[in-house]
C-alpha cells in the first residue's frame, strides 16, 4: 500500500532533480532543512529518527541532497522525509515536509474494528 504523507504525496515520487529544486526553494525561503527516517510510517507516529542535525546555514541544495543520499544508502528500506522548518516569529513550525524515499514493498495499514462500552465501535489503523 502506497503511503501518502506530506507535500506532493499524491504525485508520482519526485525525481532527484525535482527534490533538489524543492530543497532549493526551501533554502531560498530561509527555512532550516532536516532529514528524518523511520520504519513505521503510521500517521500517528510523529517521532521519526533524525539523520544528523538540521541544516541551518546552507546556500545551495547540493549539501542537503548529499545528506539525503547518505540516509537513503544507510536505510534503503525505510521511509525518508525532508522537513523544512520556518523559524520566523508567528510561524515557528514545519512549513513543508515531503517523502524522498520509501521501501520497495510497503507494508499495508489495516483498519481494525473493535467493540467498546455500550457496543460503541472503535476503529484503529494497524
Amino acid at each position: 500500500m502506497r503511503i501518502t504523507q506530506g507535500c506532493f504525496s499524491f504525485l508520482p515520487d519526485l525525481t532527484d532533480a525535482q527534490i533538489s529544486a524543492q530543497v532549493q526553494y526551501c533554502i531560498s525561503q530561509g527555512w532550516a532543512l532536516g532529514v528524518e527516517f523511520t520504519d513505521d510510517p503510521h500517521p500517528r507516529n510523529t517521532y521519526w529518527e533524525m539523520w544528523g542535525l538540521p541544516m541551518f546555514d546552507l546556500a545551495d541544495a547540493a549539501g542537503v541532497v548529499q545528506e539525503i543520499n547518505a540516509c537513503r544508502k544507510a536505510h534503503p528500506e525505510d521511509y525518508v522525509r525532508i522537513n523544512a522548518f520556518d523559524n520566523t516569529h508567528g510561524w515557528e513550525t514545519v512549513r513543508m515536509s515531503f517523502l524522498v524515499n520509501r521501501p520497495k514493498v510497503e507494508k499495508p495499514l489495516t483498519l481494525v474494528r473493535s467493540e467498546g462500552q455500550g457496543r460503541n465501535q472503535i476503529y484503529a489503523m494497524r
Partner: peptide
C-alpha cells in the same frame, strides 16, 4: 563546512 560551501 563542505555542505555550507556547496554551490560556491
Amino acid at each position: 563546512v563542505l555542505k555550507r560551501a556547496m554551490g560556491g
